[in-house]
């Protein structure tokens, strides 16, 4: 019998449902020979999950690229602002395409890890208090809780990214430390920022974080053929389950907005195009040249994302 320890964090939620599903499927397919023990924070701090994989502390883990860009430079391409990803299905497609790129595989191999699947997150739209900000000029001086590439994008249009931890985000908003908070929907719900909000940007879609699930290479290679087959074949099913489950949450989201009296703000196409031009282009160019100077094919990775996105849309 093989038992894997899986390190995730927080509480069981939409964001971890594919892992729970994977554990269930694998155990089912192997008749209980291969089981996974999912631990919510008991085995590692979330920002040390990749370290845990590399030292063999556990066999599978989830992390987010933005937590430690220097550990996983290649996949930070997926966190660039305004990539134009609109749905979770597109997010899955671009993520898995990048995970399969040799540069990504090689970088993970240095951590004794390999990408198994992604945890697709919807775009990090912002909630805010006071008057809705739906024009570019109104972002000037806005204090926003946003990290990584999204924070940089807001900074480019004059907003002030402000450091608070996600667990302090609600308090920071309530107390006026920040005016707005950028999160995916489930985080707006679980960190309570939606309770304090007056409005939510439905279509700003500035970007998202990328959170892969990885496995320890040695552990993966020491699986029996049947076990490996059970694991590999369960990934698409687990992702489908995740998408279905997250879909339900997104449906409920509209009800929550209504219930809490939060206004759904739609920005004009011109405003979004303006934002993209000001923020996305320079940040992307800086990212590409930074990566190329470190010997990572930045341009190729970015092109791969764009091609995959086109391909996915053409397929639909």
């Amino acid at each position: 019998a093989t038992e894997w320890n899986v390190s995730v964090w927080g509480k069981r939620r939409a964001f971890t449902e594919h892992i729970e599903k994977l554990a269930e499927l694998v155990s089912e397919k192997t008749g209980g020979e291969f089981t996974m023990n999912v631990s919510y924070g008991g085995l590692s701090k979330n920002r040390e999950n990749l370290d845990g994989i590399s030292i063999g502390a556990f066999e599978m883990a989830q992390f987010c690229a933005g937590y430690h860009p220097d550990k996983n430079r290649v996949i930070t391409v997926l966190e660039l602002p305004f990539l134009g990803v609109n749905t979770l299905e597109e997010e899955v497609a671009v993520s898995h395409a990048v995970y399969a790129h040799p540069a990504a595989v090689d970088e993970m191999a240095q951590w004794n890890a390999m990408y198994l699947m992604t945890s697709p997150m919807p775009q990090y739209n912002i909630v805010g208090t006071g008057e809705p900000r739906d024009e570019l000029g109104e972002f000037d001086g806005m204090r926003v809780r946003a990290t990584g590439g999204i924070g940089k994008a807001f900074e480019a249009v004059g907003a002030v990214p402000t450091s608070v931890t996600s667990s302090e985000a609600y308090q920071a908003m309530e107390s006026g430390v920040v005016d707005t908070v950028a999160f995916a929907q489930h985080a707006h719900l679980s960190f309570g920022t939606i309770n304090e909000a007056d409005w939510w940007t439905a279509n700003l879609n500035p970007g998202t974080v990328n959170c892969p699930v990885v496995v320890n290479i040695d552990a993966y290679e020491s699986l029996s053929d049947a076990e490996r087959e059970a694991l590999d074949s369960s990934v698409p099913e687990a992702i489908d389950y995740y998408l279905e489950n997250y879909g339900k949450l997104l449906t409920r989201w509209d009800e929550v907005l209504e219930e809490k009296g939060v206004e759904k703000v739609m920005l004009s196409d011109a405003t979004i195009a303006d934002f993209r031009a000001t923020a996305a282009d320079p940040i992307r160019e800086a990212w590409i040249s930074d990566m190329e100077s470190q010997g990572i094919p930045g341009q190729e990775l970015y092109d791969l994302v764009m091609e995959t996105l086109d391909g996915t849309r053409a397929g639909n």
């Binding site: 590399s54 937590y67 550990k71 990584g148 924070g151």
Partner: peptide, 19 residues
């Protein structure tokens, strides 16, 4: 694990907000 002489600022692990 967080240190690499060949990298910019010798860094192989960076913070979430300002890197």
């Amino acid at each position: 694990r967080s240190f690499d002489l060949s990298r910019p600022m010798w860094s192989r692990d960076s913070s979430i907000d300002i890197g």
